[in-house]
Design a binder for these strands. Structure first.
Lengths: 199, 199
DNA sequence: CACCTTTTGATAGCTACTATCAAAAAGTTG
DNA sequence: CAACTTTTTGATAGTAGCTATCAAAAGGTG
């Protein structure tokens, strides 16, 4: 209902909300690191963040949501839409990703990596992450169809969209198997290979 | 520990176990169809199948597992391994899938479709299905590497494996968006396109 | 039939998550 | 600043998925 929707908070309330949210996530991630995801109860997180369990669920609908959030996807999609339409769609996707990551501050990239690591190691989280990932890239696939002026149901489009998702997943898996690996690099290299797929 | 592991049960016990398992699943699926997945409690399922809730969890580790089971994957993987190694790996995968589905009885294919429909419509189930799907096809990807005598970490292998997974996912999504669509056909067509990817 | 193993059900309990509602804090207006 | 409104919070109670335990019942064997 609120008409005002500024990028940064102005009132005391909104600032406090942001602080509370950050505190909950911060303490949750610390506890997960120290004693594991399943072994940490919501009650413990709430206590550490000095709020009630009720408040925890007011900020995060589920325990999983403390970990699962992709701040990058919407940005990358916006960049993808802004790129010239005469580029190869997969090349545009790669460029959008590269720009997005290049602009992000170092700490955010590092947190992204840690969240990925945690996500891929907890089955519960892994499952939900794949769902979210699929959903967001399916949206990108629709943009891809629009970009080419073709139907989203076109087999070539569908196959390419699936392959893009799959390459992303395989990169995440690779990053999990080898913690030293650069997930961004792997994903980019995989996408580069997909440019050879006929459209 | 049991040495005997026959294809079909012999003793009264194993037959009863199989019957109990089937009964639980059957009643569960019926209740899901009638009143929805989330609206059906394990207690109701147990009561309908005339067992205790304890027994339910003895047969299915989670409520989700009543729906999530892929009887096809292990069969298809075995067939894949049995096929001549000089075939194109993706072609071999396609052949293995085709054989597997061709051999299955009609009712099993129909049940497979219903389970897929249910799975893709319940977020909770969808997420876990993707996880299972990824795991099983990753195994196939390892076989693929072995077949080519190359490293599983090879970018080309990894990309192809990811693309295979992705095509499967996109086929499932397509089948969900259009219930009339033939998921097998879509997946096969997508895989056929992947044969053009350089290895 | 007596004996051993497997399967079952009852009980109790933990934890994620929801609903409700009154108290407290933040913001607003006379 | 005092009264009033709105938002945020915490306490309470409850539902449901899931686990552990253990004694009773059923299946199988000599």
């Amino acid at each position: 209902m609120s008409v005002a929707d500024p990028a940064r908070p102005c009132g005391l309330r909104e600032r406090k909300k942001a602080r509370t949210r950050a505190a909950i996530r911060q303490h949750a991630l610390r506890l997960f690191r120290e004693q594991g995801y399943a072994e940490t109860t919501v009650e413990q997180i709430a206590e550490a963040a000095e709020v009630s369990p009720s408040t925890f669920f007011r900020y995060f609908p589920t325990k999983e949501d403390v970990v699962l959030q992709d701040d990058f996807d919407p940005i990358a999609i916006a960049k993808f839409e802004a790129l010239p339409t005469d580029m190869h769609p997969v090349a545009a996707l790669r460029a959008a990703m590269r720009e997005t990551f290049a602009e992000a501050p170092a700490w955010q990239l590092e947190q992204f990596r840690e969240l990925n690591r945690l996500t891929m190691s907890v089955p519960e989280l892994r499952a939900r992450a794949l769902d979210e990932y699929l959903r967001s890239v399916r949206l990108a696939a629709e943009l891809l169809a629009k970009r080419l002026g073709r139907d989203p149901g076109d087999p070539a489009i569908r196959t390419m969209a699936g392959a893009v998702v799959g390459v992303g997943l395989s990169a995440l898996v690779a990053g999990m198997e080898d913690p030293e690996a650069d997930v961004f690099e792997i994903m980019d290299a995989g996408l580069a290979r997909l440019e050879a797929l006929p459209l």
